[in-house]
Design a protein around this nucleic acid. Structure first.
Lengths: 142, 142
DNA sequence: AATGCAATTGCAAATCGTTTGCAACTGGTG
DNA sequence: CACCAGTTGCAAACGATTTGCAATTGCATT
């Protein structure tokens, strides 16, 4: 719990270092992002932010997400059939989306990454980034 | 060349069999889809269709793509940062997108597919479908 | 603590890709 | 060749996101 608070402060410190002004609104958003473990969309972040600071606007949420994305503090994912969803930047991973609940599960496979590199190479390309999303349904364990 | 023409006719026959009316507009679009090897977006299909039948509208292109998608005749891909792009349905494959030109290269890796299945399974899921896109830059062969 | 100004904000309007309501039109079946 | 449900073009609506603008506010400087 202390961890989260500390994390948020580091976030702000780092942003300040990058010359980004920490406004009341940004602080609220950063707090939300640092506390969440899911992948909320802009509207959901907005809802949570309003609870902290009622004066915040959706535009500011979008603008802040853009800013944070540009400096690499968060990642944006455009999963199928819905608005973009965000998460604080961590090490690279891919996503499994539960098509019934919308839940997102993170996973990582060095083997797949390696195969991707080989494929790209064989086609004469260098991968700049990739997108791997599995859309699935929870297996009934009955 | 005969092949293409034949392909288009089969397309129409199959659609008729499914109870889909072949209108002048749909025929134009089907002709374009069966002849193209690239991955045009709706606007591009519209442009090409207008050349064949000037009365066609963009709405009809969208409606037709929806229809064809629903019956599985085409596939829709929403690559990053652009409108949906379409291709006639063939065997499954993934895509490498040239981030400089927008060109799309198709590839397939049974190994990756297998790994995906294993990952999903280990997470307690069955994959319904997936999306694997590599965004890359052509390697300078100098 | 008061000042100054560029950065940031909220709001409303604009944008982009796509979908939809509606009245006019048209395949293709009888 | 008449019928009528399916299809069309048009314009307006749509959802997600971005943007212009005038008012506000961080924060570096006194």
């Amino acid at each position: 719990m202390k961890k989260r608070a500390a994390k948020r402060l580091d976030y702000e410190k780092e942003l300040r270092r990058q010359g980004v002004r920490i406004t009341r609104q940004r602080s609220a958003i950063l707090g939300i992002l640092s506390e969440t473990e899911d992948h909320p969309d802009a509207l959901e972040i907005f809802r949570r932010a309003v609870a902290v600071d009622p004066s915040i606007s959706l535009s500011t949420v979008y603008r802040t997400m853009k800013l944070l994305g540009d400096i690499g503090a968060i990642h944006r994912h455009a999963f199928e059939g819905g608005p973009s969803r965000f998460e604080h930047a961590t090490d690279h991973h891919d996503h499994l989306i539960d098509i019934e609940t919308g839940d997102v599960i993170e996973f990582k496979s060095d083997k797949i990454e390696q195969l991707q590199d080989e494929i790209a190479k064989s086609l004469g390309y260098d991968i700049v980034h990739h997108r791997l999303e599995l859309y699935g349904r929870k297996r009934r364990t009955g």
